[in-house]
Write a protein that binds this DNA or RNA. Structure first.
Length: 123
DNA sequence: GCATTGACGAAGG
DNA sequence: CCCTTCGCCAATG
């Protein structure tokens, strides 16, 4: 083939590892709770690469089962990834619908709603 | 193949 | 206290 595909490679390649791990963790986030990119990265051992977690979410929209990326926010509790959803308001709507109040694009009581994979998955 | 960007985070000024 | 810079790694230009 002469043309190299761009975009995030869809299904077919199973050589993913970091990405799949991220998806797996996010899928385990309980409803009404949220986690941060850094927490996931730290749990996977790549806390210095929190950006990669966010990048992994970039492909989370096309994989199955769908990943609740709306439950993942930055360390400030802010819905930094809202612009990547179907609509910029879809993320906060989903969170509020699941029992997570959002105000000014930020999770209310983020620290209380925080779900740490390093703790939850460590039990 | 190098430069820039990015859904982050921590540190420095 | 707010803004800027660096680091990390991968993808895109």
């Amino acid at each position: 083939m002469k043309t190299g595909k761009a975009s995030v490679e869809p299904v077919g390649e199973k050589k993913y590892s970091f990405f799949e791990d991220v998806y797996a963790v996010v899928r385990q986030v309980p409803r009404g709770k949220v986690t941060s990119y850094g927490a996931i990265a730290s749990y996977l051992g790549t806390k210095l690469s929190a950006r990669m977690v966010g990048w992994a979410m970039n492909g989370a929209h096309q994989i199955k089962p769908k990943v609740p990326a709306h439950r993942v926010v930055n360390r400030n509790g802010m819905l930094s990834g809202r612009g990547h959803f179907e609509t910029p308001t879809r993320m906060e709507e989903l969170l509020i619908k699941e029992g997570t109040p959002v105000e000014n694009n930020t999770v209310v009581g983020f620290k209380e709603k925080f779900w740490d994979p390093a703790v939850a998955l460590s039990l």
